[in-house]
Amino acid sequence: MNRGVIKAYIIKELSELFRSKIIIMVYLMPSMVMFLFGNGIKMEVKNADTVILDHDRSKLSLQMISKFEHSKYFNTKVLNITEKEAIDRMKRGEISILIIIPEGFERKVLKNQKTEIGVFVDAAFPMRGMTMESYVEGVLYQIMEETAREKISLVKINQRNLFNQAMRDEDAIVPGLFGIILLVAPAILSALLIVKEKETGTIFNFYSSPVKKIDFLVAKLTPVFFLHSINIFILFLWATYVFNVPFRGNFLIFWLVSEIYIIISLSIGLLVSIVTRTQIVALLAVIIITIIPGFLYSGIMMPISSMKGEAYIEAHLFPVMYYNHIIYDTFLIGQGFSSPKNVLYLIILIFYGLTLLIVGSLLMKKEMR
């Protein structure tokens, strides 16, 4: 490689980035995505509009109502209306949860007789509906446990949540955003820098010059690599100091894996730039290739283990799943390379990056097509 040529190209690329103000978007866009999605994606459901129809009016039903009224997850009202009217209100979107306590509920519970409680949940949005259902079940189980504590004393459930004890949405969402941001942003910039040469015609300077293909690629990708390497530290500061996400792992592992992941992103941008001729087409292609898989197969919205069939296979074809698994470990668990799975995923990421770089360099020809 010719270091003089590479240095000249790098200086040229950096000067164009500063002159065109793209350098602002290099750091503004990732931070904006971190803040928007970190604050905007909420799995927790609070103050769900809840109506209770108490047909029993017993001590046990009053205790149950009190549990719902003193929970941050429910905005509870006890109304004296018919079940039909309550269902009609739910259809109009005025009620999210309807709980019906039947007459004779306490008497049957104390006599160990079978009884039922009606729970209707607005599940128009399935994930929100499942979350509200689990909240209601948790309150009901707690009431039943307290009621039967004297009768059932042989078994005591001692439950503890590991790795995210407070069940904070930020701890679950923010680490996963690293995989999306560092996949999309470097790929867009690297693709646009090369396609811009085609669109403006300056690529012919490269075609007609003695500059080697490897020198051209290194000079084009190196500035993007170093610029987005700084984003690793910026995003880390936002995650730990603004969103207060714990970091229990090794920072060296976090940094190393993130750098490898940026190389993968740059390689994707390189491949897109080879097959496209205009910046708008390159931008759309990168968005389709990175953003959609980034959200679907990153593990943020849906666990990969719950996917089946083609979706499960596709998730393993994209690098974001492997990267996010290691990132979640570094933030919340801290096993590092003592976990064989983390080591395997690191090897897969290295293979992924090298393969894409080699394919991209082979497909790029120093000639007009």
Rank of each mutant, 00 (worst) to 15 (best):
M1F: 15
N2D: 06
N2P: 01
R3E: 10
R3C: 08
R3V: 11
G4T: 04
G4D: 10
V5L: 07
I6F: 00
I6H: 03
K7G: 05
K7L: 02
K7N: 09
K7W: 09
K7I: 14
A8D: 08
Y9V: 11
Y9A: 07
I10E: 05
I11M: 14
I11C: 13
K12C: 07
K12M: 15
L14C: 09
S15W: 05
S15I: 12
F18D: 10
F18T: 04
R19C: 09
S20W: 02
K21T: 08
K21G: 05
K21C: 06
I22V: 09
I22S: 14
I22P: 06
I23N: 01
I23W: 10
I24E: 02
I24D: 01
M25E: 14
V26N: 00
V26C: 08
V26G: 00
V26H: 01
L28G: 06
L28N: 01
M29W: 00
P30E: 05
S31E: 10
S31Y: 05
M32A: 14
M32Y: 08
V33T: 03
V33S: 07
V33M: 13
V33C: 13
M34C: 05
F35H: 02
F35G: 03
L36C: 04
L36V: 06
L36F: 15
G38P: 00
G38I: 04
N39I: 12
N39E: 12
I41M: 12
I41N: 06
K42A: 13
K42P: 10
M43S: 07
M43F: 15
M43A: 15
E44D: 04
E44I: 12
E44N: 12
N47R: 01
N47Q: 15
A48Q: 00
D49T: 14
D49R: 09
D49S: 14
T50W: 11
V51C: 06
V51H: 05
V51T: 07
I52W: 06
I52D: 13
I52A: 08
I52P: 03
I52Q: 11
I52V: 10
L53A: 08
L53W: 00
L53S: 03
L53K: 10
D54P: 00
H55L: 05
R57S: 00
R57A: 07
S58C: 04
S58E: 01
S58G: 02
K59Q: 13
K59L: 11
L60K: 03
S61N: 05
S61H: 07
S61M: 01
S61Q: 06
S61I: 01
L62Y: 15
Q63P: 07
M64E: 11
M64T: 05
